[in-house]
């Protein structure tokens, strides 16, 4: 029995030893390395640079798309904000006394309303100077010293403006009747026109 056990154990060990003694064919390592090298992607500067380049191109395209999509909204917002600006803000500040304040807008040139443009509006701080201009200073000085003249000028300007604002009544156009004279046909003086009969040339016929 023990002999059989020993036989079995030795046979099993021998059989299992074949696993441990298994040797690959010569050149296995070279074949493995060659296969990994063959499957390795080639390294070239162009290949390496391509993903970055494509990335930058994609980012640029996205930025352009966003700009195109946002620009109309941005432009509309600027127009709306320009419309909502109160007119009093655009007029220069007044340094004159209170009773004369109503005269100043008539004497100063009226601010021209610019049509909305595509360009963004300049900053409002630049549109509203904190210091009066030299013309405004002169005007204020004139008002303070010559109030009567200023009033006269203002009333005259207002009268003129009112006359300009009045609708012009249509005036009847003085029309004289149109007279059409009959056409006078007179005979043409001179000799009457005589048409001679056509004569054949005999030489041409012979040809």
């Amino acid at each position: 029995m023990n002999h059989e056990h020993e036989d079995f154990d030795s046979l099993l060990e021998n059989s299992l030893q074949t696993y441990a003694n298994a040797e690959p064919r010569p050149g296995l390592q070279e074949r493995i390395l060659a296969r990994t090298v063959a499957q390795q992607p080639a390294l070239s500067p162009h290949r390496r640079a391509t993903p970055n380049l494509w990335g930058w191109l994609a980012a640029g395209a996205c930025a352009a798309l966003v700009a195109v999509a946002v620009y109309p909204h941005f432009n509309r917002a600027i127009r709306i904000s320009a419309r909502r600006q109160p007119s009093s803000i655009s007029s220069p500040p007044l340094t004159s006394p209170a009773p004369m304040a109503s005269v100043i807008p008539a004497l100063t040139p009226a601010p021209t309303q610019k049509p909305p443009s595509h360009r963004p509006a300049p900053p409002r701080a630049k549109a509203l100077p904190t210091q009066p201009t030299s013309q405004e200073k002169l005007l204020a000085e004139f008002l303070s010293t010559h109030q009567k003249e200023a009033l006269l000028l203002a009333s005259a300007q207002a009268h003129e403006q009112a006359s300009l604002d009045q609708p012009v009544a249509p005036k009847p156009i003085a029309s004289t009747p149109i007279e059409i004279r009959p056409i006078q046909i007179s005979s043409i003086p001179g000799r009457p026109i005589v048409i001679d009969p056509i004569q054949k040339d005999s030489t041409q016929v012979d040809r």
Partner: peptide, 24 residues
């Protein structure tokens, strides 16, 4: 480790070419 891996694969597969393919 290639020899050990080959033996492991061979112990399972019992075929040299299959074992080599498994190692690669």
């Amino acid at each position: 480790h290639s020899r050990l891996l080959y033996r492991i694969a061979f112990a399972i597969l019992r075929n040299p070419s299959d074992a080599e393919d498994a190692v690669q």
